[in-house]
Design a binder for these strands. Structure first.
Lengths: 352, 352
DNA sequence: ATGAAAGCGCTAACAT
DNA sequence: ATGTTAGCGCTTTCAT
């Protein structure tokens, strides 16, 4: 037999028993220290912590899971109602992770809150903390009240991970979500490949007041600056996610500039955009690049109105958030980075 | 507080103890039956199996892991050497899954074999079976000798999953790999979006004798038939993965047809293709769509020679294969389908 | 052929 | 403040 190489790594993990022996205490005491439970003299506590660090201790998750199996740790999830298609996909990712962690001592508690009222989000956090959750996954729009309560939860020993939309300037352990800037850049790159004859571009968003919307626009514009493509952004339309406003403004822009060759629907009402294009069908094709994969977008791809859509792997966001929280709580492993970006992918009709 | 819905599912799993009680035997006997160990009267065996099925028994992985922790189950991995970039990514996926399964009672054993000699693959299988592996991940080119030995392993109770390249007509439990046909279709869809003025297309592959290569070509051509795009495949070039052959043939084709507007590098020597294009630079741009993300492709994207590349998530292939094998062995869960396709994604320069 | 029991690493309840 | 011990569900060894 030829160059068939072998590799076998035996990892003998350290146990609390070993730590206990080295420290000259019982395993109960070690357990107390390692899980920040009260009732240990500070001096002993430090000693044990030092030994644990030295021995590179990491808990055995199987053993932990088994011990927890009668009374699993509760993981709280706060997010908008299921009937939003984007969040449904996130939820599928969460469920997939939960399935893998099924026997590993965890239980989920979903709390669906309206994204508009911070008070609901606050109430949800408090309810979960009171219920004794081991950690929280949180996805509600930023707000001072929310920030305050996230920090309060953390102070009470309940780690929080934000996902999909971040709540910055808090002590959440990390954020799992999309790379908005990158998606803006990719949109520009795609646009430059399909828009050849009519280089004037329209960008449509909800509002420049939202950081998320601005970031995509910045990504798009920065790409134009960096590249030598001759595309030109005519106008950034704010449609406030309303059909009428969006339709009217796009109509207006298109009638004023019949030579617009592309529209980047960064956010906002896709249906309105598609209708506007239908109403203004001219001699040349108007190319459309947008984000996410809502039903209207799928429809647009099928009709050939939308060329590309850039998706942000919502499934992956759900999956990674739960797993990251699990690793943090059960293995004491902090995420590598404060920002965990989900993959940014391009989809066309043939991808479906 | 408003419409905040709750959901909490408590899953009380059945244990071998319960089965033992219901069957009026000891847990040891149940364990023997459930793991197909010898030493149980057929009558008792059937009874226990029936009860287990009725109670919808599934083993608790944490408990199983803990019991195995002193002597973890060995998972064998047979694949081409690490220094192939595609397989390195697959390996990263395998390692990521292994990391998650770290405390769950498994250990990996890699065997790197040359993809060209079936005998090496056979020897590897036999070596692993002799070593007492619990299951095998296998990725070596199809061959009668290989097929025979895969079946032999299965007969000896060692489940096999093929990945990346399948070995058909065997009793492997499933195949994890790319959807070649789909990637061919997507390539055609992309081509139609960027090739506008010069609709003649060249397809370059290694050889039509390989099913994998044919399948992509078929996907591409079928898409053309189904759509009303006016693209036309001029020629399918077989370059046998050799630089010289590929370069010469493409050069020949391009000089004969200066109006070729696109090349689909389905497989084969990308570097040769890029050089041919440089040597034949004409008035119009020749658009290139290819597969995978080898270093040359990345280079091509940066130079603007390649428009799109379609990737098949090798990382995901590695990850999913190991997890699927684990679920099969430790949870007794068969994959939903015989074919598990990794995601097919489009990448552009801005994706990198 | 089958039963009994020890042990895997950790938690939690009880004892000191 | 700290030690002791009984599980958690499964595997495995030793008895019967």
């Amino acid at each position: 037999m030829c160059p068939s190489t072998k590799s076998e790594v035996i990892i003998m993990n350290t146990t609390i028993r070993q730590i206990a022996e080295q420290a000259g205490v019982s395993r109960g005491t070690v357990d107390r220290v390692l899980n920040d439970r009260p009732g240990v003299k500070p001096l002993v506590r430090d000693k044990i912590k030092k030994i644990a660090a030295q021995l590179n201790y990491a808990p055995n998750v199987a053993a932990k899971a088994l011990a927890y199996s009668k009374k699993p740790a509760l993981f709280g999830i706060i997010m908008p109602p299921e009937d939003i298609s984007f969040f449904e996909e996130i939820r599928e990712g969460i469920q997939a992770a939960a399935e893998e962690l099924k026997d590993l001592g965890i239980r989920l508690q979903y709390l669906y809150v309206n994204n508009k009222e911070p008070e609901e989000g606050v109430a949800a956090i408090q309810e979960l903390v009171a219920a004794g959750v081991a950690g929280i996954m949180f996805s509600v729009m930023d707000d001072a009240l929310i920030r305050e309560n996230i920090n309060k939860a953390v102070d009470q020993g309940v780690p929080v991970i934000t996902f999909n939309s971040d709540v910055e300037n808090t002590r959440r352990i990390c954020f799992v979500g999309q790379d908005l800037y990158k998606s803006g850049r990719m949109a520009a790159g795609l646009m430059s490949r399909v828009v050849t004859t009519h280089p004037k571009i329209l960008i449509v968003i909800g509002s420049m007041r939202f950081q998320a919307h601005r970031t995509r626009v910045n990504g798009f514009k920065d790409w134009l600056t960096d590249s030598d493509a001759n595309l030109e952004v005519m106008q950034v339309i704010e449609g406030y996610d309303r059909y009428d406003d969006t339709l009217m403004q796009i109509n207006h822009a298109l009638s004023l500039n019949p030579d617009i060759g592309g529209i980047y629907m960064a956010t906002g009402h896709v249906g309105a955009c598609m209708d506007a294009i239908k109403q203004n069908a001219g001699e040349h094709k108007i190319h459309v690049v947008c984000n996410d994969l809502m039903p209207e977008v799928e429809q647009g791809l099928r009709e050939g109105i939308i060329d590309f859509t850039i998706v942000q792997s919502p499934y992956q966001q759900g999956y990674r958030t739960l797993r990251t929280l699990y690793e943090y709580i059960f293995k004491g492993k902090s995420p590598e980075s404060e920002y965990i970006f989900s993959d940014t992918h391009i989809k066309i009709l043939e991808s479906l």
